[in-house]
């Protein structure tokens, strides 16, 4: 099997941190744009422009790539199964959302990078929930 996970396990944390920091900028901008009733796609003055720059945008995908290429601290098949189930749920949720979106919000258009961010964040959230539901004795 092709093993692309060549980075040490602590790169998972580094990659995830990069992703969260870079997503935070666009998330906060979206929040302020809505709060200040600015037109869609504009930039709020409350957010430093560097956080919305192309470089920061690239950082987001770089973070995910680093995360994907990092080894697990403890690799085991059960965790792998939980990951697959999380991915499946995200995929299923996306299909479900777009299947019914035409009925309740047909004018809604989602940009590809927003969809990707939502999918990645949903994956981490669901995976965390799955792991949290397993409570081993100490």
């Amino acid at each position: 099997m092709l093993n692309l996970r060549f980075l040490p396990h602590y790169f998972k944390f580094i990659g995830l941190s990069l992703f969260v920091i870079s997503v935070l900028g666009s998330f906060l901008n979206g929040f302020f744009v809505a709060h200040e009733h600015l037109p869609y796609g504009s930039q709020s003055d409350a957010i430093p422009p560097i956080l919305l720059s192309k470089e920061f945008h690239v950082l987001q995908y770089l973070g995910i790539l680093i995360y994907v290429f990092a080894k697990d601290k403890v690799f085991d098949e059960f965790m792998f199964k939980l990951r697959l189930e999380s991915l499946f749920l995200v995929f299923f949720g996306t299909i479900l959302f777009f299947s019914f979106q035409v009925y309740f919000k047909p004018e809604l258009k989602i940009e590809a990078d927003y969809l990707f961010d939502i999918q990645v964040l949903s994956y981490f959230f669901i995976n965390k929930l799955f792991k949290g539901s397993i409570t081993p004795e100490s």
Binding site: V74, D76, E77, F78, M79, K131, I134, P136, E137
Partner: peptide
């Protein structure tokens, strides 16, 4: 031996041992 000890000895997580013991997961 605790779940943690057993998990460390065979190189898996504690959650995996818990899941196998409680029939939530069938090991390879």
């Amino acid at each position: 031996i605790s779940q943690t000890d057993l998990a460390e000895r065979i190189g898996v997580s504690r959650q995996t041992i818990y899941a196998i013991e409680n029939n939530k997961f069938t090991p390879s």
